[in-house]
């Protein structure tokens, strides 16, 4: 019974957030467009030299993904904070970590997943090889959930700060450096035909770590900041 209730809160909040995303699409479409435009500026700025583009592609795509994730992250708890829904979640006796995981998953589905779907287009734009694209896909699949979870910790901390977007980036971007390093290394290593299992495993470990630990941090942060009037 208890398990069933926990599951129902997870699916209930997930459905609610997805419904809200569908009805107010600007919050996730804008960061996505930013991602597309930011990456497509590089061939224009750097020049169409394929070798050069291929070399910088992993870094460019990943940095753009990181910035797009930061843009989207600010909205994760803010709307709920402003209309009082967050209060209702905080005073619910249901497990806060389940509510948070559902919210972060919904957020990743509308902001992280589209980045992955767009990655083939960007790979062509940046002249990545097929192997490079596969590696990119893999890193995005493992890396963007980490960005969502780390970003959620920051979003929870600054939820009561008006215009906290920049502060959020300052807090969270340094934490994302390991993800950026390993993810770009995977794509570069794959590009020269070497084994990538090691770095991919490290990304997987980072994901496991953030999935297990960040809900605790997010819940703690929300209990401190989310109740502020």
């Amino acid at each position: 019974m208890r398990k069933q209730q926990t599951f129902s809160i997870f699916t209930g909040i997930l459905r609610r957030d997805l419904k809200l995303a569908v009805r107010a699409p600007s919050q996730w479409i804008n960061p996505l467009l930013f991602f597309l435009i930011a990456v497509s500026l590089f061939p224009l700025g750097v020049g169409p030299e394929q070798n050069m583009l291929r070399e910088i592609a992993p870094g460019v795509i990943w940095v753009a993904a990181l910035l797009a994730a930061m843009l989207a992250q600010d909205s994760l708890f803010r709307a709920d904070f402003e209309d009082g829904s967050l209060e209702q979640m905080l005073i619910s006796s249901r497990p806060m970590s389940m509510i948070i995981m559902a919210k972060v998953l919904a957020h990743w589905l509308v902001t992280g997943l589209p980045l992955i779907v767009l990655s083939p287009v960007l790979s062509i734009l940046m002249g990545l090889s097929l192997v490079g694209w596969w590696a990119l896909l893999l890193t995005l699949l493992l890396g963007t959930p980490i960005l969502s979870l780390l970003g959620a910790v920051g979003a929870a901390l600054v939820v009561s700060v008006k215009r906290g977007g920049v502060l959020l980036s300052l807090l969270v971007l340094p934490l994302c450096i390991p993800v950026l390093i390993f993810a770009t290394a995977v794509v570069q290593t794959a590009g020269v035909g070497l084994a990538i299992e090691g770095q991919v495993s490290l990304l997987g470990a980072l994901l496991a770590l953030s999935v297990t630990l960040s809900p605790i941090a997010i819940a703690g942060a929300l209990r401190v900041t989310g109740g502020a009037a």
């Binding site: 609610r16 419904k19 809200l20 009805r23 107010a24 402003e82 209309d83 009082g84 829904s85 209060e87």
Partner: peptide, 9 residues
């Protein structure tokens, strides 16, 4: 005061 109601629902 804040009703906890989502406008889009």
């Amino acid at each position: 005061h804040k009703h906890g109601i989502k406008d889009e629902l």
